[in-house]
């Protein structure tokens, strides 16, 4: 093996931030924009993609000796399609509501450029262990990317996170603390002003997805440039 080939552990850590599939490689944009309206669908999609990526990596790595050069993309795509069918049917069977929410984006994992590119670049040339490490790293990176975008969109767009109403929860806690403090100090009744979180409706609509991803890409790029300039 040539000396500059990354090891399994290096590949795993690489996939999380340095070569993050969404923020650095700009792959897999379709599900990133589509399902990140809330955290729950985003994490389900990340889990489904992780399952398909790992399984496809393992299978492609096992059959890498048998691949003909001009048919390999078709073989990758068929393998991925099989596992996506499994994931889609399992999701429809055990999490039916979530399957309806995710809609056509689970079968669209088949044409997720991330999985095909990982099969092409890594799994078809490396052993099973390295392929698994690469798959795990990329899945974690993808989940991180989806989670960051979904958090922003859900918190700003509906005031919830994983369905938990953050603002009203914090408001209730603050009210309780205020009531407790005023009782101790004997100051009578004081109340917090009646404020509510106004949902930023645009965040759960398509333009919000584009804007959030664009701004987050800019933020990641900015941090990367600062680190590079600090490292020089």
């Amino acid at each position: 093996m040539p000396l500059d080939e990354p090891t399994a552990l290096e590949r795993l850590i690489n996939g999380i931030l340095p070569e993050n599939p969404v923020y650095r490689q700009l792959l897999g944009m379709c599900p990133t924009l589509a399902v990140t309206g809330a955290m729950m669908p985003a994490m389900t999609m990340a889990a489904a993609t992780a399952f398909v990526l790992l399984s496809a990596n393992i299978i492609v790595s096992l059959i890498r000796g048998l691949l003909k050069p001009h048919l390999r993309i078709l073989v990758f795509t068929l393998t991925i399609a099989t596992f996506v069918t499994i994931a889609d049917r399992a999701l429809a069977a055990y999490m039916y509501q979530m399957s309806k929410t995710l809609g056509p984006y689970v079968p669209l994992i088949i044409v997720n450029c991330l999985i095909i590119s990982r099969c092409e670049i890594c799994a078809s040339k490396q052993s099973v262990g390295v392929a698994i490490a690469d798959g795990v790293g990329m899945s974690l990176g993808f989940a991180l990317a989806l989670g960051s975008i979904a958090s922003i969109r859900e918190i700003l767009g509906s005031g919830t996170w994983f369905g938990l109403h953050l603002f009203s929860y914090a408001y209730t806690v603050a009210e309780n603390i205020l009531g407790w403090v005023t009782t101790i100090l004997g100051m009578g009744t004081l109340g917090l002003p009646d404020i509510h979180w106004q949902n930023w409706g645009i965040m759960v609509l398509p333009p919000g997805a584009f804007l959030t991803l664009g701004l987050l890409l800019g933020a990641v790029e900015w941090f990367g440039q600062r680190r590079r300039r600090a490292g020089e």
Binding site: P207, F210, G214
Partner: peptide, 23 residues
């Protein structure tokens, strides 16, 4: 265009505004 946003960043923001128009 600000340097961090150059390339895909500003393209996505523009796509967002275009999506708003198509709404």
């Amino acid at each position: 265009v600000p340097k961090p946003l150059a390339g895909p960043g500003i393209a996505l923001i523009t796509a967002g505004i275009l999506a708003m128009a198509f709404m």
